[in-house]
C-alpha cells in the first residue's frame, strides 16, 4: 500500500432499507468522491437492491439472509477481489451520516491504524437508552479497552474504516451476529491496531433499534459468551498481521477473496 492515493470503497449493509437508501447512497457519493459505493442487500424482501442500483451503487444482492456479519463479510471479500485499499462501512438506516466519513479518513491518515472506529459523540456520551443497556455497553467498553490496551469508548458502533491487511483477515473470519465487539477482540488477538475518532451520529431515521427486549438479553449472553471464549483461543498465525502483510508483499494483489478455510 505504497500508493499515495488509496482506493476507497463505501460498504453499506442493508436489510429492507429501501426507504431512505437512495438518499444515503447519493450523500455517500457526494461526501466521498471517487469511491465506489457498494450496498449489500442481505436477503431483503423489498426494493432495497433496485433502489440502491438506480442511486448509482454497486449491489451485492444476497439470495438469503446471512445476518449483518455475513453481509459485511461479503462486502470485504468483494473489496479484496476488486483491489480496494480501504473500506468505509456504514449502516443502511442512516444513523451514520456519510458527511462524517472524511473524519474517519483523516483519522486513518493520522494514525495508520488498521481499524478506525467512528465513536458516537452525542452530549458527550456514547451511551444511550435504558440504564441496563447503558451499563451493558459500558461494561463492554471497559472489557475491550482492557483487552486491547487502548481506550475504546464505543464498542458497538458499526461506523468503521478498515484498511488492507485487516480486510484480508475479516474476509476469512468474521462473526455472524452482532459482530462489532467480537471483531474488535479478534483483531486485537491477530496483532492489528485500532483508533477511535469522535463523530456525530444522526438519530435513527426510520425504525427502532433491533436490539430491545429479549433481543437485548440474547445480545448480552451471546456477546459475553463469545468474548469469554475468545480469550481461550490461540492466535491464528495464518491470519496474523505479519503473515498477511508478507503474503500481500509476495503476491501483489492476487487475493481471491474466496473463503480459504
Amino acid at each position: 500500500m505504497s500508493k499515495s492515493n488509496p482506493r476507497i470503497m463505501v460498504l453499506i449493509p442493508a436489510f429492507n432499507e429501501a426507504e431512505g437508501l437512495a438518499d444515503l447512497v447519493a450523500r455517500a457519493r457526494k461526501s466521498l468522491p471517487d469511491t465506489r459505493v457498494v450496498v449489500i442487500s442481505d436477503g431483503s424482501t423489498d426494493d432495497t437492491a433496485r433502489v440502491a442500483r438506480s442511486a448509482g451503487a454497486v449491489v451485492l444482492d444476497l439470495p438469503c439472509n446471512l445476518g449483518v456479519g455475513g453481509a459485511v463479510q461479503a462486502g470485504f471479500q468483494y473489496a479484496i477481489a476488486e483491489g480496494f485499499d480501504l473500506v468505509v462501512r456504514m449502516d443502511g438506516d442512516g444513523q451514520h451520516p456519510p458527511e462524517e466519513a472524511p473524519k474517519l479518513l483523516e483519522g486513518w491518515r493520522a494514525t495508520r491504524a488498521d481499524l478506525v472506529i467512528g465513536a458516537r459523540f452525542h452530549d458527550g456520551s456514547p451511551f444511550q437508552g435504558t440504564p441496563v443497556r447503558q451499563a451493558g455497553i459500558r461494561a463492554l467498553a471497559v472489557f475491550l479497552s482492557v483487552v486491547c490496551r487502548t481506550r475504546i469508548s464505543d464498542p458497538t458502533s458499526g461506523f468503521w474504516l478498515v484498511s488492507r491487511p485487516l480486510l484480508d483477515c475479516f474476509a476469512r473470519e468474521y462473526p455472524v451476529e452482532y459482530p462489532e465487539p467480537e471483531a474488535i477482540a479478534l483483531l486485537r488477538r491477530q496483532g492489528f491496531t485500532l483508533a477511535e475518532v469522535p463523530v456525530q451520529f444522526h438519530p435513527r431515521r426510520h425504525g427502532r433499534s433491533s436490539i430491545n427486549g429479549w433481543r437485548a438479553i440474547y445480545y448480552g449472553l451471546k456477546v459475553g459468551l463469545a468474548l469469554f471464549i475468545e480469550r481461550l483461543r490461540p492466535v491464528d498465525h495464518r491470519l496474523s498481521k505479519t503473515a498477511l502483510l508478507m503474503k500481500m508483499a509476495h503476491s501483489g494483489n492476487t487475493t481471491t477473496g474466496a473463503d480459504a478455510s
Binding site: 451485492l60 444476497l62 439470495p63 455472524v176 474466496a258
Partner: peptide, 18 residues
C-alpha cells in the same frame, strides 16, 4: 455452507452484470 454459497453467488452475479 449456506452463507458461503450465498456470498459466492452474489459476487458472481455482480461480476456477470458488470
Amino acid at each position: 455452507d449456506r452463507a458461503r454459497l450465498a456470498r459466492r453467488l452474489a459476487l458472481l452475479e455482480t461480476k456477470w452484470e458488470m
